[in-house]
C-alpha cells in the first residue's frame, strides 16, 4: 500500500487538486485549493458570486492554467491528457448552454459523440443508440426534430444535458444548470443529474439554490474567496453558522420528512464580511 505512506496522495480516480492557484485578470480567483472529486455521487459546488466556482470547473477542464499547484485527472496532469481522450471521460455543461445555429435537437445531442469518433472512428449504430438513450434520460425525445434555437430555457438545458450524457462521460461538470429555470424544470434537471450520479458517475454541479444542494447532493463543497470554506455532507456544510460566515445570511435549516431544506431568510447583522 504505497499510497498510505504518502501524506497527501493524488487520487487515482477522478480529479485531484493540490495547492491550486488561478489568477484571472491579475486577480487570484482560486487561492490555494486542495480538493478531490471522484467516485460515484453528486457534489454540489456552492459559494457566493466570485468565490471561484466557475473558475474551478474551467481549471478542471484545462481551459485555465493554474499559476501554482497541480490538477490531476486519474493521476495524470490534466495538461498532459490528449484532449479527445479527456473529452471521452469528462463531460462539461457550460453556463447558459449557448447554441448559434438552428440545428435540430437530435444533431445537437449527437455532437456529444464527437470525442468518441476521433478516437475510435464513427460507429453510427452505437451513436444513434447513445443519442436516443440520452434524449430519453432527459425527457426530450419529443423535441428530437425541433430547432435547438426554438426551445424554452428548461427545454434547452435538458437538451444540452442530453448532449453531455450522449458522450457517456465518467465525470460530469455542470455550471449552474438550473439558473433561470422555473421550479418544475429545476427539479427535473436535478433529478436527471441525480440519476446520472446513481448510475455511477461523478457529478459536480455549481448551484446557488441551497435547498437543491441539500436535497440532491451527497457532498457539498463550499468555496469562499477562492478558498475551501467547508467540504462534507450537506447537513454539516450547510449549517446556519457557515452560511452566516460565508454568505452573510441568516438561514432557516430544517427537515421535511427526512430531507434537509435550507432557506436563506434575512441578511445577517453586520459581520466581518460586510465590514470588508
Amino acid at each position: 500500500m504505497p499510497l498510505a505512506l504518502d501524506p497527501d496522495p493524488i487520487f487515482a480516480d477522478g480529479f485531484s487538486l493540490r495547492g491550486v492557484r488561478v489568477s484571472r485578470g491579475g486577480r487570484g480567483v482560486i487561492d490555494g485549493l486542495d480538493l478531490d472529486l471522484g467516485g460515484a455521487g453528486m457534489v454540489g459546488l456552492i459559494g457566493p458570486n466570485g468565490a471561484g466556482k466557475t473558475t474551478l470547473l474551467k481549471t478542471l477542464m484545462g481551459f485555465l492554467e493554474p499559476s501554482a499547484g497541480t490538477v490531476h485527472f486519474d493521476a495524470r496532469p490534466v495538461a498532459d491528457w490528449d484532449r479527445a481522450a479527456l473529452a471521452c471521460r469528462v463531460g462539461y455543461l457550460a453556463q447558459g448552454a449557448p447554441c448559434f445555429w438552428p440545428m435540430t435537437v437530435e444533431n445537437v445531442v449527437g455532437l456529444g459523440r464527437t470525442p468518441h469518433h476521433r478516437r475510435f472512428g464513427t460507429d453510427g449504430l452505437k451513436d444513434r443508440a447513445a443519442v436516443t438513450a440520452a434524449l430519453a434520460a432527459t425527457g426530450v425525445e419529443h423535441l428530437r426534430d425541433r430547432s435547438a434555437l426554438d426551445l424554452s430555457g428548461g427545454e434547452r438545458v435538458r437538451v444540452m444535458l442530453a448532449r453531455v450524457l450522449a458522450g457517456a462521460p465518467d465525470v460530469l461538470l455542470a455550471d449552474e444548470p438550473v439558473a433561470g429555470l422555473d421550479p418544475h424544470y429545476q427539479l427535473q434537471v436535478m433529478e436527471v443529474l441525480r440519476a446520472s450520479a446513481d448510475a455511477g458517475r461523478t457529478v459536480v454541479v455549481v448551484l446557488h439554490d441551497l435547498t437543491l444542494a441539500a436535497r440532491f447532493c451527497d457532498r457539498v463543497v463550499l468555496l469562499d474567496r477562492g478558498k475551501l470554506a467547508a467540504d462534507g455532507a450537506p447537513i454539516d456544510v450547510l449549517s446556519p453558522e457557515s452560511l452566516h460566515e460565508v454568505f452573510g445570511v441568516t438561514a432557516l435549516v430544517g427537515r421535511h420528512r427526512e430531507a434537509l431544506y435550507v432557506l436563506p431568510w434575512s441578511l445577517s447583522q453586520p459581520t466581518a464580511r460586510a465590514a470588508e
Partner: peptide, 20 residues
C-alpha cells in the same frame, strides 16, 4: 468540419469536446 460543428455550442463546449 467536426470542430465547426462543435463550435455551434460555443467555444468552451467545443474545447470540452476535445477541439483546439
Amino acid at each position: 468540419g467536426p470542430a465547426l460543428d462543435a463550435l455551434t455550442l460555443g467555444e468552451e463546449t467545443a474545447a470540452s469536446l476535445g477541439f483546439s
